[in-house]
Amino acid sequence: MVLVFAEASNGKFKKAAFEAVTYGAKTAAALGTECHALTLGEADAAGELGRYGAQKVYHLNAPELATFDSAVYTAAIAGAAQAIGAKVIVLMHNSTGKNLVGRLAARLEAGSAPGVNALPKVEGGKFTVRKAVFSGKAFAEVEILTDYKIISLAGNSIPVEESGAAVAVESLNVALPAPKTKVLETKRAEGITPLPEAELVVSGGRGLKGPENWGVITDLADALGATTACSRPVADVHWRPHHEHVGQTGVAIRPNLYIAAGISGAIQHLAGVNSSKTIVVINKDPEAPFFKAADYGVVGDLFEVLPRLTEAIKKHKGV
């Protein structure tokens, strides 16, 4: 059996949860077994996960699960897997998943693969997954050797697919330990799709010259409905908040579209963005290394090109 931990954020499921359930359902089909989903804490309409292929959906809600604690969530997920006899556990490769994959692997003495980006290969009794290594500069095919297998799915790796219908939500009895941490505060920029989940990203570098010039980036992002990002030096000098920093030492992203303006394309920057499906580079220097990694390039002054692109997008959208 495959168990998917589908995380809800403020009670709502996001696309990444549907991707994980889709992944779990396809993995279960390859293994000739069922896919069940589990959600913890506050969650609305969990039965909807059935649409993406979960044959059963369990919802556990207890005071200990109201805020995130890695030890409690681990006990809940491992306990649920044991209760239903699931051997493959699929999580989302986000901040929650990163706190859980290792704990679950240690608890269940399982092989783990954080951040897989394709469906597993199931052949001749072997279970092999694919993940990016060397910060996106290479891929590894990793065989999981143990009975229990813990996988987290990198966002935007597989398309969400509907293959079923909503199901009734069931409860489960799992013993939970007392939390070891207490959440004091959660601060989130409202109304913006966070970078790791964004399908469209517009990013600016030192070529912008200063924070006062960011309007050309945010105007384009607004027109597209994209999330904004930046290169590391830009975040280092606080032109932009540090959660916008993408690259090897920042957020690693894999959007459908990455538009980079005034960014030279240093190897450490590319490491975090080269899994993007389509890359557009705008730079006044035709020799900028980023053009080698780009699908589409515009050699020109970003202060002229970006507003033109924004207008063209608005025209395309009929605004």
Binding site: S112, A138, F139, V142, D295, G297, V298, A312
Partner: peptide
């Protein structure tokens, strides 16, 4: 608990397609 079967490199990008900066 795991074994790396092999590594591979991302496929080489085809050459960038340059667009006229006047024609967005």
């Amino acid at each position: 608990t795991t074994r790396v079967q092999h590594y591979d490199l991302p496929p080489a990008k085809s050459a960038v397609r340059l667009i006229d900066p006047e024609n967005m």
